[in-house]
Nucleic acid binder design. Sequence first.
DNA 1: CTGTTGGTTAAGCATATGCCTAAGTATCAT
DNA 2: ATGATACTTAGGCATATGCTTAACCAACAG
Lengths: 115, 115
Amino acid sequence: MLNQQIDLDLLFHALADPARRAMVERLSRGPAPVTELARPLPMSLPAAMQHLDVLETAGLVRSEKIGRVRTCAIEPRAFGQIEQWLAARRSEWEKRLDRLDEYLRTLENERDGHG
Amino acid sequence: MLNQQIDLDLLFHALADPARRAMVERLSRGPAPVTELARPLPMSLPAAMQHLDVLETAGLVRSEKIGRVRTCAIEPRAFGQIEQWLAARRSEWEKRLDRLDEYLRTLENERDGHG
DNA sequence: CTGTTGGTTAAGCATATGCCTAAGTATCAT
DNA sequence: ATGATACTTAGGCATATGCTTAACCAACAG
């Protein structure tokens, strides 16, 4: 829970790249080895590994190496941080718009009452 | 709706910076002029403007200049794109985990039935 | 008209990012 | 032991990012 600031930096940054989102999309449908994640991407294997590393550092993906193959899986809990931040923003502006709405209704009522 | 790929790149990238998130947090509580958004940030005004530009290009913020003051506001609809993408991922892995769960229950029943 | 406020543009610089190729390691298959 | 597979590490390069300062413009206040 410490350093949410940095966590959000890493999380949003990790998802701000189509190659990394493609990996996340693939992993959402089930675990996969590094090579399978890299295959559809228009880049070398080392480049793909760097993207994978970004995802792991952000905590969006975990991986375990068995024999010579590293199997990757998504870490659903990491997405919670993002959803929480978004929900917090949404609740703030909705509250504000509700207040505005209420205020406008009050004005309208006053007009109706005293007109 | 076109080019969701690029949209998501811009959206996630825009939110991957603490200064920009601070602006979004401020604007969630109501509109504000550029100077007010920049004041709390540990950087020059031009630097802050560049961040603001990133937010506007991503569609997260809109702004209007009246006289010499530019007033900024959040664009709630832009957040929908992100939430939609996250929800799609979540639904994929939840579906998968449900299937796994169901499969494990089947195994258990078979064992109980034939044991 | 003059100064101040609020914003904008431009140029430059230091560091970070995203990719590459080449080479290395460890496992598994024959 | 030999070769193939699945990564992994290292080094390097080209471009992008995130700032800075300096200068500029437009609007409003006195």
